[in-house]
Write a protein that binds this DNA or RNA. Structure first.
Length: 209
DNA sequence: AATAATAACAACCGCTGTGTC
DNA sequence: GGACACAGCGGTTGTTATTAT
């Protein structure tokens, strides 16, 4: 990392909140031409009124071409649970074993879906009580937790059918492959909701400049 | 149909580790 | 070795969408 005198972006006007399509385009174009890294200066050079941190996060979690979105498969769920049982909240470490998934996505998935069911299961089944402690104690038995959690996945499926009609515990590398390239994460259209395909198509049309 | 409650997700914040000067 | 800037991580919050009443 080189260390140059660097006027803080914070001094200037800093935009916060949801990214606009225009900002996304600027970021994509800039990275396509100059590559990623040195995020603070990137943000300035690209003319984005965002912090480098914000740019990095947006790129890593959302704009990167290899980011997979939506529909976490049953295999991925199991893997997440297994790795979480092993490592605890080491989201980035877990994410490395799930190609295309981001730590943020896995973290959100865990907190919003799995943890909820763990709590429910705990209330109805004392056997589950060891699991949540893995949040704080990553050394608990992985195999025990995982096998118990499998039941939860099944339960989860019943509630998640709207999100993934293909849920079934069977080898679904095929599912993953076929669904990935055409995955459209949009749930609707508004100023802030466009498909990555659109953005990348536009980027290509612009000739990357 | 309107409203409230809940779920899901995107983004921000604070902290820590690392490299450079 | 200390100061600084950047990168990365994990926790938390805010917003939007969906479901239930």
């Amino acid at each position: 990392m080189d260390k140059k005198p660097c006027n803080s972006v914070v001094d200037v006007e800093v935009r916060k909140g949801p990214w606009t399509m225009e900002e996304d385009m600027i970021l994509i174009n800039y990275i396509a031409n100059h590559g990623e890294g040195v995020w603070n200066s990137l943000a300035r050079s690209a003319g984005l009124k965002r912090t480098g941190k914000s740019c990095r996060l947006r790129w890593l979690n959302y704009l990167r071409p290899d980011v997979r979105r939506g529909n976490i498969t049953a295999e991925e769920q199991l893997l997440i649970m297994e790795l979480h049982a092993k490592w605890g909240n080491r989201w980035s470490k877990i994410a490395k074993h799930l190609p295309g998934r981001t730590d943020n996505e896995i973290k959100n998935f865990w907190r919003t879906r799995i943890q909820k069911h763990v709590k429910q299961a705990e209330n109805s089944n004392p056997l589950m009580q060891g699991y949540e402690h893995n949040d704080h104690n990553a050394n608990s038995s992985a195999s025990t937790s995982t096998s118990q959690m499998s039941g939860i996945v099944g339960h989860n499926q019943q509630h998640e059918h709207h999100a993934n009609d293909n849920y079934s515990i069977q080898p679904c590398a095929e599912n993953m492959e076929t669904s990935f390239p055409t995955t459209n994460f949009s749930t609707g259209w508004n100023d802030n909701n466009w498909s990555m395909e659109d953005l990348w198509n536009m980027q290509l049309l612009n000739g990357g400049e």
